[in-house]
Design a protein around this nucleic acid. Structure first.
Length: 437
DNA sequence: GCATGATCATGC
DNA sequence: GCATGATCATGC
């Protein structure tokens, strides 16, 4: 009995847990009759603890106190792309609002419970008993400090601060990125609310949990090694979001440090774009996968009021060429037909710029028609006077404005003069409306 | 705060 | 050397 594995050794526990891989609990151990009579009742996690690891029933302490290890069992499902996904969030530990506000990260209930976990993944199948569900992946030894501890800690601090400010009843899973404060408990009218500090209002019971999206990240990383955009097993969107996810909410400075890539100087205008490129791939000036797919990546910097700092520029046009071009042969047309990947940075209330989101976007047809109108107007006016082209106020979507290396970077006009190069821009206000819808 | 004009760093 | 994406700078 005692020599099956060593309860004080993480390594021994891990190796023992591997015996489950590819099998169901029922195939590995002989379950007592009363468990089999339970049919599909009974939590698989509890059954594994009791009948595989043969642990005594635990309270709130660790499952393997001598090894400092917590055991978690969680379900997988098959996603639309045929890959494993989390069946649900992984609930970690209840939140005691009164205690939380007294804690620091290092000595917190959460950190000490979750800093080292052995996670077992089984494939959930409806209609069969839990003990017949198969463990389809190797066990995952999860070390918090190696796994996104920065983000998780920040989430934890955010939740704590909300409770400190007497707003435990306002907690929401959307507050945070990886670690959520999920609802836990009966719900309904009869639910007993929990006391919180700094407010007379009771708050619904909540638990710390890894959100499903974070579980999917863990699973994807664990199930297969996917260094670059894995477009075979994931959609483009999924692959992109997965790449950006670890950086969401971080300040530009934090991301810069994390990537070990720094602004070359005060005039490094492409810095945020270069950062985004490095998040998506590991080097170079562009992302081959995006180029291949014809995806136009653009960085957008939002101010505190939600307005972009700048309009969005496109390649410059030649005065002598545009006058002979058709809309559908123009570069601007081609650009506006493509799919965009917006990398959005946003200034928070303290003036710190943070990565806000990465979103795909296509320009709606009506807006492309308006852009076409601006383009056609430009073509017409270049012939009349290339110095007088459509301005911001003339369209809700686009305008024309200089874009050159300096004042000497000019091109000939139909008037026989030389004029600084110009290009089409999407209005900052238009971009704002796009991001708000 | 915004429109407009004027560059700047990068990578090929 | 140049195209490109992005930002800086100025004036109202």
């Amino acid at each position: 009995m005692q020599d099956k594995y060593d309860k004080s050794s993480v390594d021994s526990i891990y190796k023992f847990a591997q015996l489950l891989t590819g099998k169901s609990l029922n195939e590995v151990v002989t379950l007592p009759q009363e468990v089999q009579n339970l049919r599909n009742r009974g939590e698989l996690g509890g059954l594994v603890e009791a009948h595989f690891f043969e642990l005594p029933p635990t309270t709130s302490n660790l499952d393997f106190p001598l090894a400092g290890l917590e055991l978690k069992t969680t379900g997988l499902k098959i996603g639309p792309k045929g890959t494993y996904q989390a069946k649900e969030r992984l609930v970690l530990t209840m939140i005691n609002f009164l205690k939380l506000v007294e804690e620091d990260w290092e000595n917190s209930t959460f950190y000490n419970k979750c800093k080292l976990m052995l996670i077992l993944f089984y494939l959930y199948e409806g209609g069969i008993p839990t003990y017949d569900q198969r463990f389809v992946l190797e066990p995952l030894l999860f070390k918090l400090d190696d796994h996104d501890a920065e983000v998780i800690r920040r989430d934890w601090e955010f939740i704590k601060e909300k409770v400190v400010s007497g707003r435990a009843h306002e907690l929401s899973e959307g507050d945070t990125f990886y670690l959520g404060a999920c609802r836990k408990g009966a719900g309904g009218d009869g639910e007993k609310l929990r006391p919180q500090p700094n407010s007379p209002l009771g708050a619904k019971a909540r638990a710390f949990s890894f959100k499903p999206s974070y579980m999917n990240l863990l699973i994807a990383g664990h199930a297969s090694e996917s260094p670059v955009l894995d477009t075979i097993t994931q959609s483009f969107e999924e692959a992109t979001y997965q790449r950006f996810y670890p950086y969401l909410g971080l300040s530009v400075e934090q991301i810069s440090k994390k990537l070990n890539y720094f602004k070359s100087g005060p005039n490094h205008k492409g810095f945020l774009r270069d950062i985004a490129v490095r998040i998506l791939s590991s080097g170079g000036s562009n992302v081959p996968e995006l180029d291949k797919a014809g995806i136009e990546m653009k960085t957008i910097r939002l101010q505190q009021n939600g307005s972009p700092r700048e309009s969005m520029s496109f390649p410059s046009f030649k005065y002598l060429e545009i006058v002979n071009e058709e809309w559908e042969d123009s570069k601007f047309f081609e650009k506006l037909e493509s799919k965009f990947l917006f990398i959005v940075f946003r200034e928070d209330s303290s003036g710190v710029e943070r990565l806000d989101r990465a979103v795909y976007w296509n320009m709606p047809f009506l807006d492309r028609q308006e852009a076409q109108r601006v383009w056609a107007d430009t073509k017409r006016r270049v012939l009349v006077d290339a110095r007088d082209l459509p301005k911001t106020r003339e369209s809700s979507v686009a305008h024309v404005r200089p874009k050159a290396r300096d004042g000497n970077d000019t091109l000939p006009t139909p008037q026989g003069t030389f004029l600084v190069k110009q290009c089409f821009w999407l209005n900052a206000k238009y971009i704002k409306s796009v991001l708000q819808s």
